[in-house]
């Protein structure tokens, strides 16, 4: 059975610098996969390769078995891979509603509407005409997620969901994840907070220096093994 989204022997480069070496990861339909690892290990590069921001070879990224590596980001989102970028990156001069509507530029049909996003994040209800730059960090993250949902995706890629947010706010936001999975959306999660990542995901990959050096079902991964993986095999 082919995975929903997978990478096969993925190499990625920034100029002359190689950031990923032969990475294989798999996301099954309905799954939530976490990518963990120290700063600069290649998690974000991997995510950027999936989004289309980092050019990679066509055959190294597959969606439903079809090669999509190196396609432009606009093409990739139209195939159903949406993203919630690091730092939220709302459009500061657009209102909340306008930011959400930008998700519809994917051109994909599906169930998500402004009203449905408001059901998921009621906190946004009385903020709809505010500009993105006027919101709190947590509200911005909600808009960023809502914007991804509005593209009616099959997969959502989260980059540093909890970064810079208070734990209670992260909990609020994290409640959306099961809801998304109920709607048939699969999730890839890049996360600094290892415990949280394991709690939220079904399966996890640990990346060090551009290579996968540990993987397993999230519930089975021992925290000590991950710590060891973080510092390299010989440490």
């Amino acid at each position: 059975m082919t995975a929903l989204l997978e990478t096969r022997n993925l190499d990625a480069f920034y100029g002359d610098f190689q950031a990923l070496y032969g990475v294989d990861v798999k996301l099954e339909e309905g799954q939530c996969v976490a990518l963990i690892g120290p700063n600069g290990a290649g998690k974000t590069t991997l995510l950027r390769s999936l989004v289309g921001w980092v050019p990679v070879a066509r055959e190294t990224v597959l969606l439903n078995g079809q090669p999509i590596g190196g396609m432009g980001p606009d093409k990739i989102v139209s195939l159903g891979i949406a993203s919630v970028p690091e730092g939220r990156r709302l459009f500061p001069s657009l209102t909340v509603d306008e930011n959400l509507l930008m998700g519809t530029e994917s051109g994909r049909a599906g169930p998500w509407t402004l009203d449905k996003v408001m059901e998921v994040f009621p906190a946004l209800r009385d903020r709809r005409r505010h500009r993105g730059s006027d919101l709190s960090g947590g509200q911005q993250q909600m808009v960023a997620i809502g914007r991804a949902l509005m593209s009616n995706p099959k997969v959502v890629l989260f980059d540093e969901l909890s970064l810079g947010l208070a734990p209670t706010i992260v909990n609020d936001i994290a409640r959306a994840l099961p809801l998304m999975r109920d709607n048939g959306i699969s999730i890839v999660l890049v996360e600094q907070d290892v415990r949280r990542a394991l709690a939220m995901s079904d399966y996890a990959y640990c990346i060090l220096e551009g290579r996968i050096n540990l993987q397993g079902v999230s519930a089975d991964l021992a925290f000590e093994d991950i710590e060891k993986a973080f510092f390299g095999a010989e440490a």
Partner: peptide, 24 residues
């Protein structure tokens, strides 16, 4: 208009606009 919204979004952040599906 929708075109105006896309234009302003692209003005703000062309990289993210592309990830939203905008053919910049």
């Amino acid at each position: 208009t929708r075109l105006g919204r896309v234009l302003r979004a692209t003005t703000d952040d062309p990289e993210v606009a592309r990830v939203m599906g905008v053919r910049t």
